[in-house]
């Protein structure tokens, strides 16, 4: 299973909440510069998987390693410092800080530590990167929904993560915003970033992902290119139910 050049490898990871098995013996690898999609019906354990990679939850069994070093028993802040950056399913900002300070937060404590001028310059660059420079000194309350999403992304990018986790980053956007959003992730992909994304928007998955892992009831039911997995009978059954297969 383990490939050479894999940056992140998930090995037999299981997560139980009481009697509920949220993630069941899941394994996959992510290579450098690869965009990996985790897809599956609601409640199939995708976000739980993301939370385990970022260190919000500890796996009940199995291991997650980054460049060969085990990270699954480290606290979240340590995983962040090793270069795993994440956005949240429901966007989370720091409301009493300005837009710029929100991004500085990512630059200061992240994977590469910056401070003062250096951190502010980095924050300005990232705001420009996501197209939010004009709002740098605005309060958070002045942001539209997509701008909030952009800001969260800028905060994560400011920490220069080696692996970027996007948890339904496109969810809740209207069609125009969606186009802008997909374009933004495309740019990140072109930069050669390693990205793991959880997504429901099929167009986005097709155009963005190199490979996908499909989850259903916590287990992996398929893995491969988006075209292959989306035409897989079992995947269709998982999404649409038995009758339609």
């Amino acid at each position: 299973m383990r490939q050479t050049g894999s940056v992140l490898s998930v090995n037999g990871v299981t997560k139980r909440f009481g009697g509920l098995v949220a993630v069941d013996n899941l394994s996959f690898d992510v290579a450098e510069h690869e965009v990996m999609g985790i897809i599956g019906p609601n409640g199939s354990g995708k976000t739980t998987m993301m939370n385990m990679i970022s260190g919000s939850f500890k796996p009940t069994a199995g291991a997650i390693s980054m460049k060969g070093a085990r990270i699954s028993d480290l606290p979240a802040q340590e995983i962040a410092r090793r270069g795993v950056g994440r956005t949240f399913q429901l966007v989370r900002l720091l409301p009493s800080l300005s837009v710029l300070e929100n991004v500085v937060a990512g630059a200061v404590f992240g994977h590469r530590k910056r401070w003062g001028r250096d951190a502010e310059d980095q924050a300005h660059r990232m705001l420009e990167r996501v197209g939010l420079e004009a709002m740098a000194y605005a309060p958070i309350s002045a942001l539209t929904y997509i701008d909030q999403k952009r800001l969260e992304l800028a905060r994560v990018l400011a920490g220069e993560p080696e692996i970027l986790l996007l948890d339904e980053w496109l969810a809740g956007l209207n069609p125009t915003e969606m186009e802008t959003g997909i374009e933004l992730i495309h740019d990140l992909r072109r930069e050669g970033r390693t990205i793991i994304l959880v997504e429901h928007v099929m167009d986005a998955i097709r155009s963005l992902c190199d490979r996908c892992v499909v989850m259903s009831s916590g287990a992996k039911i398929a893995e491969g290119t988006p075209e292959d997995v989306l035409s897989d009978r079992e995947v269709i059954r998982a999404y649409l139910g038995d009758d339609d297969a």
Partner: peptide, 16 residues
């Protein structure tokens, strides 16, 4: 200040 805003974000930007 970040912890006071959102402890979960604080952890994920790398704050102990």
């Amino acid at each position: 200040r970040i912890i006071g805003n959102d402890e979960s974000v604080a952890k994920h930007v790398g704050i102990n």
